[in-house]
Design a protein around this nucleic acid. Sequence first.
DNA 1: ATGCATTAGGTTGATGTCAACGTTATTTGC
DNA 2: GCAAATAACGTTGACATCAACCTAATGCAT
Lengths: 147, 147
Amino acid sequence: MMDPDLPLSATHEVRDRCLCLHLQRAARRLARRFDATLRPHGLTNGQFSLLMALNRPEGPRIGDLVPLLGMDRTTLTAALKPLERRGLVCSVADAADARARRLVLTAAGLARLKAALPAWRATHDAVDATLDAGGPEGLRQALKQIG
Amino acid sequence: MMDPDLPLSATHEVRDRCLCLHLQRAARRLARRFDATLRPHGLTNGQFSLLMALNRPEGPRIGDLVPLLGMDRTTLTAALKPLERRGLVCSVADAADARARRLVLTAAGLARLKAALPAWRATHDAVDATLDAGGPEGLRQALKQIG
DNA sequence: ATGCATTAGGTTGATGTCAACGTTATTTGC
DNA sequence: GCAAATAACGTTGACATCAACCTAATGCAT
């Protein structure tokens, strides 16, 4: 039945060792956990991270967020649409560069963020506590090397 | 300008410490890297993992893959559609349970997998080599604790 | 100054992702 | 045996994700 060129051992190798698979799986599960925590506040984990990144003296441009969030520029454009529609974010033309737009938290967006912060912190502390080997900092370091 | 209830320090706390953000970001970047490696073979990283999981003596049911891939059951249903349409996977009714269906690699799917395996291995080895602190095994352990 | 590469961003199409809800089949409790 | 609970799966709707392709503005080099 099994193709000798693709033995079960290859399947098990991917299952047990593939960092891409392990990372995707852990990311999905952790995302669901944060999504559940943030749901009462009407935010997903990605929306929380994005909104929080806008809390600066000067609103960032889309391109500024790419290295921070690690997502494609066009993904960001799409992710902003529901937030703008819900009035949590608005974009203003950049004063110095007509190509760019600055992203700004609205009062509603700021209120949403402030309300959600304790939930994020509680879940985050709980996750941190489950990490022993190397501690959370070791994991963050390892993730930084991968990214 | 900045709301005193949501100071910059909170924003920096999320940016620097949020494991959810760090995990999502690393997962996106690594996914793009594997996607690029697998693109000549017409597969994404997720499709590769999924197809590889079907390489068993007896095709698994959808529910069997949920813990392995860590994704929602309905996500799996959706992910299978393009693969079935392209003739890489087909589903057959389970002999013992009329509710379930078994997922089976087609000959084309198997060929695709075999062809893609060296690319996966090369990229995977390269990623492994970039991890020093704790080594790849330490990271996998940490990810398992999170998931 | 002007031409051209670069940069910021948008749009489209395909796929990935999940919650909420519904259907059908199995199992379990009595 | 049969009713209720459970389990396996599908569909829908909303959002996330990226590659490929496009427009417009900036900047630099001559």
